[in-house]
Design a protein around this nucleic acid. Structure first.
Lengths: 239, 239
DNA sequence: GCAAAAGTGTTTACAGTACACCCATGG
DNA sequence: CCATGGGTGTACTGTAAACACTTTTGC
């Protein structure tokens, strides 16, 4: 009975992290070039083994911080992948997380530059193979992000503190893969009253400068309690 | 390096399964009385260790089938719980699934009767303690079910093949914890044209017998491709 | 004929949609 | 003065919401 019991304790757990960023134009994902077998030289999601005394959530945070230096960013567990054959070196399950970071706050830590951590356009990565089952993991995280971004104000995590409405719209379009109508989008967002008008404008652009806004999370929380329905849906489409 | 690597392979993985049923009145969950330490004699979710050569998904299906004899029921992975301290006997992560079964199809397998597998009203279980972190797991599964049932036609999994519109409404009310307006609910469901009118009625009830319907999944799939939005939301409320 | 649940329509209000032109700036 | 993207309003349409009475059966 005891030996039987011990035989179950032979799994390894990894966390793989789909780190999303937004460059003002496209949704991006951070990949690393593998320096070891298996899948040597293939692109892979950043990830690592969970340590014996480490909470799962802490492991996810650790991976992100080791790589980017960022703490307390948006991090959400998505799904656990556990096919017996998924890892050639043994029985390894992986728990997929995704995180949303402001691409400007970020610099790749020196220790990881050798591993060629790089941003890729999500749409490009979907066309190329990745190590292990990382393509499946990426797809699961994209799908979750699409659902989540429509009903929770997490899109702001991908933007700088100060942003324009056009940037916000572009962000939603690149995540949802749908065009949004400019006037309807502005009307909807502004009517929620969850943005602070910073009374500032862009500078040095060769066109009428856009107003800058920031997200008012305290106000958002108050409004949610009063029954606000945050919902960005893409029936507001355009040809 | 190799020893280091092997040191990661000391986790055990379990699957815990929140099995939901519906008795026509309330949403129910199946619990088992633990016959061993830790948490001897406490109520717990059905679950078991994942075996070395077993896919995670297969393990979830196996647990369900061993207990109920049911195959190919609705089964969805929800979340993995991995606090280092969550299991007193060692490092055990658990992957939570929930499943939806038709309570009439079901009988507890003899091997499990000794373990006192029993249905409880979900609303009652939420008021009592459970073994391990199973309360957290249950809550996560309820939350997921609430979200899912609104936008996917999974509620039918909990009903007999033939059901009345009142039963369907009662089901949604017990899952969503909101009253729905009778006329608006009927109008909405029937306008989707995803139910087959069986041209039969209840028998032996002491009031006007209700018409029986069944869910037309093929038609549903066709309509979804044509852009049907399945959405049962509870703004259709009543005092 | 009474109790109990099934079944049925209309009106109102709000939110989603479609759509085109003027404005401010840099070069 | 031209190119570029920023910013604005209105009319229409469809769906959600509120709401009360009649019907059918068993006893």
């Amino acid at each position: 009975m005891t030996t039987d019991f011990n035989s179950f304790f032979q799994f390894a757990i990894t966390v793989d992290n789909v780190i999303f960023g937004f460059d003002g134009q496209d949704l991006k994902v951070l990949l690393m070039k593998r320096g070891e077998i298996p899948y040597m030289d293939d692109w892979a999601l950043p990830g690592h083994f969970v340590k014996q005394e480490e909470d799962l959530t802490s492991a996810a945070g650790r991976i992100l911080e080791e790589l980017t230096g960022l703490k307390s960013v948006y991090l959400e567990q998505v799904k656990t992948f556990g096919k017996a054959s998924r890892h050639p070196m043994g029985r390894v399950m992986t728990v997929a997380y995704y995180s949303l970071i402001n691409i400007n706050d970020f610099e790749i830590k020196p220790a990881f530059i050798a591993k060629k951590a790089t941003w890729f356009k999500v749409s490009d990565v979907l066309k190329t193979p990745l190590a292990f089952d990382h393509k499946d993991i990426l797809i699961a995280c994209i799908d979750r992000l699409k659902v989540k971004v429509k009903t929770q104000p997490i899109g702001f995590e991908l933007l700088p503190n100060k942003f324009t409405l056009t940037e916000l719209k572009q962000l939603y379009e690149s995540v949802l893969q749908h065009q949004l109508d400019k006037r309807n989008f502005r009307k909807k967002i502004l009517s929620m009253k969850i943005l602070i008008d910073l009374q500032e404008s862009q500078e040095g652009v060769a066109h009428r400068p856009a107003k800058l806004y920031s997200f008012d999370s305290e106000r958002y929380n108050r409004l949610i309690e009063d029954g606000l329905h945050f919902d960005i849906s893409y029936p507001a489409m355009q040809a």
